[in-house]
Design a protein around this nucleic acid. Sequence first.
DNA 1: CTGAAAGCGCTAACAG
DNA 2: CTGTTAGCGCTTTCAG
Lengths: 338, 338
Amino acid sequence: MVTINDVAKVAGVSIATVSRVIHNKGKVGDVCRARVKKIIEELAYRPNSNARALASKTSNTIGVVTPNLSMSFFASLASGVEKGARENGFKLLMANSLYETESELNAIESLRENNCKAIILHSEYSDENTLIKLAGEIPGLVLINRYVPEIANRCVWLDNLSGSQVAAKHLLNTGHKSFAVVTSIYQNRDPGCRVEGIKTTLGKNRIKLPLKNIEEATPNIEGGEQAVKALLAKGCKFDALLAYNDVMAIGAIHALFDAGLRVPEDVSVIGFDDLPIGIACRPRLTTMHYPVQEMALYATNLAIKLSESTEATATVSKQTHLFIADLVIRDSVKERTC
Amino acid sequence: MVTINDVAKVAGVSIATVSRVIHNKGKVGDVCRARVKKIIEELAYRPNSNARALASKTSNTIGVVTPNLSMSFFASLASGVEKGARENGFKLLMANSLYETESELNAIESLRENNCKAIILHSEYSDENTLIKLAGEIPGLVLINRYVPEIANRCVWLDNLSGSQVAAKHLLNTGHKSFAVVTSIYQNRDPGCRVEGIKTTLGKNRIKLPLKNIEEATPNIEGGEQAVKALLAKGCKFDALLAYNDVMAIGAIHALFDAGLRVPEDVSVIGFDDLPIGIACRPRLTTMHYPVQEMALYATNLAIKLSESTEATATVSKQTHLFIADLVIRDSVKERTC
DNA sequence: CTGAAAGCGCTAACAG
DNA sequence: CTGTTAGCGCTTTCAG
């Protein structure tokens, strides 16, 4: 491995000079600079970033922790962070939290050990106090998809309420009269918000959403299928179905067809997230676009900015970072004229 | 930040002792060890991994480079590597290569600067010589989804030929008589192999595959649609369609339905990869399971092993690491009895 | 404009 | 069993 010392020796200068030309700062004579550059090239010298981080007490590494990578929602998230990291010349350290408090904390610790300058955290299981404490310790920490009022300016999140309201309104506008909802068994945060948004919108329009028309299941394809089966078994009638997310919507569509109901002719289905699978199914899924990738990119830039600003600045700003979901009209919702 | 020095001071021992209890090696008195442990706990001391890597000239970091993260194939790959890294107590550095030779090389360099002990590389654009050279320089380098004979023992790859043969055979066994193929415009490596496998299998069974029944397009959903439209426009007749991969297959199914042809009643469709979208579409896609995640996990363990073995051992082994694809029967292929 | 020197936090001999 | 010490490769004053 060729070090800065080797370069200095060959170039006949001190390592300080080499360091200066590498960083393009400080005053270095033109000839000298040119020679050093040439030698760096020839020797294929690559600065050791561990040594750098150690000496400068700062790194150009950004960390991201998500529950996993195999669900496309999180893959998009990671993809957005990767883009942000790359554009800012940062390295990306990735750690998965596996849906557990403990491994979530481990993941964060692991990133801290590595001296990550900024950290993007999708936290599901840590309580607010832990997050607030963490934010106090790590200037470059940004939460994604979660809102904690005390650290509002460190949160990049989505307005689930308005999103689900838009979805419900779309169904109303297209003439639907009777509704059903399949949601996640984990009735915290997002699922809770989304159901809430649906309820208020329907309520405002004097449409009843009987409790038995809301079915909970695990938020995946099978869950969507089961929920619809349960709904049908209970004898629920509905011409519109709102799913917690796209995967549940897909499962719902499968179950509906299996029961002899056509989508969208007999029942309209609307999802949430706008995952790639939405254009794979038949009919193509009408859904709410969750701009995760864009949000992740935004969060990354924010995290880098925060990590560079003085503590004072970071604390002063009270601005939060709220995104909204857009309606994506495809083929799973049909206008009812009756 | 609390350092090993702080711990040593508070515990009233030398840093060497602290280091020993951290690594659980060397001889340390029981009481002493207990006290140090307690203090580490109290001070919430976290070793600085940059300093570690620098001092020990080795890191517990593994790097992975893939073209991107937003395609689910690569997300699965990354997911497998993440799992391997986690299980071995490694950190994961991720770099995307964006489908370009230059950024692929940049990504690799970036990982090397970070002293990655092992690197998993999905290379599409580097030529073999570059890869061979790289393998010589980086003991822990493993290629995934690519075979380079000179460094066979560093390659974890899939037998595309046998995979596509199994697919073709399945269609033959289910009574299909006339075939069409939609493949990628990038007729290198994988796509080439897969078409080849189809041709030989059909050939052996005295079934003609007219050149005009093979249509090339970009390997995505739209490409699949276009290819089928082109096939139909040319007046091609077929009762079985082999797609280069699942996304093209999905596009093909869409186009087939749009043209009034039912899948699988009128034409059977078979994909390749076994991506999550395969169970989202209707009918559910029959496809070849590409065990990427498993392969990535295997590659990770292999890379770590290689990085730890002496150069001699690493070079000596001539074993390569070939995986095969399994047939996954779902609903897009129908038995023909006529 | 350039060099010398003091560390960054940790590991790994080497003494004792 | 425990402490001392010499770096790892680089950044960063501080002199000159």
